[in-house]
Amino acid sequence: MNGSYELSSDLEEMEAPVILFDGVSKEYVKGIRAIDNISFKIRKGEFVFIVGSSGSGKSTLIKMMMREIKPSSGRVYVAGKELSRLRKWQISKYRRSIGVVFQDFRLLHDRNVFDNVAFAQRVIETPTKKIRRQTPRMLSIVGLAEKHKSFPKELSGGEQQRVALARALVNNPSILLADEPTGNLDPKNSWEIMRLLEEVNRRGTTVVVVTHNREIVDVMQKRVITMKNGVMISDNEKGGYIHAKN
């Protein structure tokens, strides 16, 4: 599965990839590769699961897409931009085109639901009027309009993740990255979040989900990229969870 894409021919395709990994490797410690020569492309509007056991390199892939880290070799393109070439001031602008959801929600506990979602807009300097209009709309999409005054500690795990999702989506990102979004949730809440992610994808957002949840991957029948020990061992267009043998 590893190898290099012919970049020129890829870009000529009708649907250019919105995310492209081209022979990407990462060494955190010299000589030890966290990911090794990874190449894949994700087209606009796709829903992709990245699966694999702990230490397989899934999180490294997500961190590279967020431009938290740079590859040691190879190139990562998102929306046509090579991320390694972004200057410091361009990174913040780039991140505005991406929504991120984490396993631990990462909400601000001293602010209520409304303010947590408004915060994402405030950070990118959205006018206050627009924030007042967009926040309630986004909260009703994730089913939390009634709880806009509640603080995170007053919400269930599922509700907290929905707030995180609303925060990630409120700025209309073209890509949504979800790192183990159901990792801390019970099955009922996990399915609610996945249904929301599917709805977001149906509206045109490219969704990349890193997960351990076999049931969800098997049932949803989306594209699945499987990682093992830093190497991509499969990329199935409509697949289930593959358990990699050691």
Binding site: W89, S92, R95, R106, L108, V123, R167, A168, N171
Partner: peptide, 16 residues
């Protein structure tokens, strides 16, 4: 710390 980390992830400028 957490707030700043979230700010950075969602695209806050250095000035902000």
């Amino acid at each position: 710390k957490q707030e700043i980390s979230i700010m950075k992830l969602i695209g806050a400028t250095d000035f902000f």
